[in-house]
Design a protein around this nucleic acid. Sequence first.
DNA 1: TATAATATATAAGTTGTTTATATATTGCAA
DNA 2: TTGCAATATATAAACAACTTATATATTATA
Lengths: 114, 114
Amino acid sequence: MLPTDLIKGSLKTIILKLLEENGRMYGYEITRKVEELTAGKIKLTYGALYPVLHKLESEGVLITEPENFNNRIRIYYLLTPHGHSVVTEKLKELSEFIESLQLIVESKPGLNHA
Amino acid sequence: MLPTDLIKGSLKTIILKLLEENGRMYGYEITRKVEELTAGKIKLTYGALYPVLHKLESEGVLITEPENFNNRIRIYYLLTPHGHSVVTEKLKELSEFIESLQLIVESKPGLNHA
DNA sequence: TATAATATATAAGTTGTTTATATATTGCAA
DNA sequence: TTGCAATATATAAACAACTTATATATTATA
């Protein structure tokens, strides 16, 4: 498993992307999906996940749809129209970030330390 | 410029990678180099940079070589043997992280919301 | 009957950042 | 010659965000 500090800044974007891709999801499902997609390398903790979801809701990025499934409460989250544009923006940022990281990781030494 | 929260978790690895690639660097030089490599998309703040450098020094990952250049003090940082193995490890983690992010970003919808 | 999996939630503690501030020299432009 | 930008390091206070621990409750499995 990857160290959690790496994931920190991308947590919100990951959640938003999954919501856009899957229509609507509940919290527990999001953690399962992330583990599945990354072969267990990324695991979200609930202490991080729920506060982020609640914040996104308060910002009008997503809305909730509580449902009952087998006497268990499932709170589905889905993007608002505003949320969709936020996802687009965040995904663009994430792509640029990944590109920038690769530029650094693949950089060759300068000529300044011959 | 990219939002700083994205960069957070990768800061240490970025610094270590640049030190390995360039032999030795001083703090100001590191910030210049990161801006140069990423076309201004990533900018390190000194309030983040120096504490990280000092911590890496206290952990035995790097050592310092203060030098005088034009009456200005430059504190060069260079990796210890231990530091080199840390870089290798951190870069591997970062690569896995990037791969994981791409798996999520490129993921297609599940069949569960027909 | 006990444990694992499912499902959400929050508070306390920790960590790590931003922002503001301090200090000092060199080079350039007005 | 005065002031500003660039160079160069450093730290404290404030803030943000995460981890860890804890709480609650149902269903499925051993």
